[in-house]
């Protein structure tokens, strides 16, 4: 017995479970954030742009905005490059690759609070292992102030962030590589192209969709990433490593500025939305 639903209806039905969960969990918070950012409360429908005006005048907001625009792209590109390279390496027929495939995923499995605490400790000028080794080997004469120098503090966090973020990219790339027909490569070998050309003309085009997905998701992901900044520097020294999401966190939990935090979050979402339009177009292009 088979009853035929119209395709369109089936299409919507398939979306239903996902949509329901998203609505249940996120609809109210999203609406509430938007309303709060305009100063609207349940018993008070007064509408104000004050929070947005304040935000545009707030140098700390612009500072964290700027830091986010450094933090996110470098992290995303780092994740992608490292993830793709490791996936390519582990796709080769080398000894122990199964073992390595598990090993390189470990950074992703460790709770990021611990990751932050551990990296902070490793970076410490006196009690940190990195300076200890570099000093002993003789690469440096004075301990490097990884998290306290104006020029490198943010990059030190990015290093830890890429460490944490790349395994996920690697996993997606690995599955992408697995689905490329080995026949294509064999055809390539016969034609006498070198490995680099193979990578550019055969591998990359086949990974295009995966790369778009990864770029879209890691971009959003890195925007939301807060644990490392929070545990490693708390945004310091001064506000050198303050990013938008840690700024929101601070306004909300430390300063009790719920409406202001919401306004920043809304701006942040708009920013992310603009950035991700090409991705959305890319993934839906046939």
């Amino acid at each position: 017995m088979r009853f035929s639903l119209s395709d369109k209806l089936l299409a919507y039905l398939l979306l239903l479970p996902a949509a329901l969960v998203l609505f249940f969990v996120l609809l109210f918070p999203m609406v509430s954030t938007l309303l709060t950012s305009f100063g609207i409360e349940l018993n008070n429908f007064n509408f104000t742009f004050d929070n947005y005006v304040r935000l545009f005048k707030d140098p700390e907001f612009w500072n964290s905005f700027k830091n986010t625009l450094i933090f996110v792209p470098i992290s995303v590109i780092g994740d992608l490059v490292l993830g793709l390279s490791v996936a390519l390496l582990l796709n080769q027929k080398i000894k122990g690759r199964k073992f390595f495939r598990v090993l390189v995923l470990l950074p992703w499995m460790i709770p990021s609070v611990v990751t932050g605490a551990t990296w902070r400790w490793m970076y410490n000028p006196i009690s940190g292992i990195i300076n200890s080794i570099l000093l002993r080997v003789g690469l440096i004469e004075e301990p490097v102030l990884w998290l306290s120098s104006k020029s490198i503090a943010l990059f030190s966090i990015i290093m830890a962030n890429i460490w944490r973020g790349f395994p996920y990219v690697m996993l997606i790339m690995l599955t992408g590589l697995q689905s490329i027909d080995s026949d294509i490569y064999e055809a390539g070998t016969i034609d006498g192209v070198n490995s680099w050309q193979k990578f550019i003309y055969l591998t990359l085009p086949n990974l295009k969709k995966n790369i778009i997905v990864v770029l879209a998701l890691t971009t959003v992901w890195e925007f939301r990433q807060i644990d490392l900044v929070k545990t490693m520097t708390g945004g310091g020294p001064g506000s050198l490593t303050e990013v938008l999401v840690s700024f929101v966190f601070k306004q909300y939990f430390e300063f009790f500025q719920f409406d202001y935090a919401s306004a920043i979050a809304v701006i942040m979402s708009v920013l992310m939305l603009i950035i991700s339009i090409p991705y959305i177009k890319g993934i839906l292009a046939d």
């Binding site: 395709d7 369109k8 089936l10 299409a11 919507y12 398939l14 979306l15 996902a18 949509a19 998203l22 969990v25 996120l26 109210f28 918070p29 999203m30 509430s32 954030t33 879209a216 959003v220 925007f223 939301r224 807060i226 999401v245 929101v248 966190f249 909300y252 939990f253 935090a261 919401s262 979050a265 942040m268 979402s269 992310m272 939305l273 991700s276 991705y279 959305i280 993934i283 839906l284």
Partner: peptide, 30 residues
């Protein structure tokens, strides 16, 4: 499938991720 809300859905789904968890967790609690 090809249906009108396709683009909207994929965009919407991504958008839901753009509000930081800090702000989601309070209202979700309610």
């Amino acid at each position: 499938f090809r249906f009108p809300l396709r683009k909207f859905f994929m965009g919407f789904v991504l958008c839901t991720q753009m509000i930081p968890g800090v702000l989601l967790v309070g209202p979700y609690f309610k």
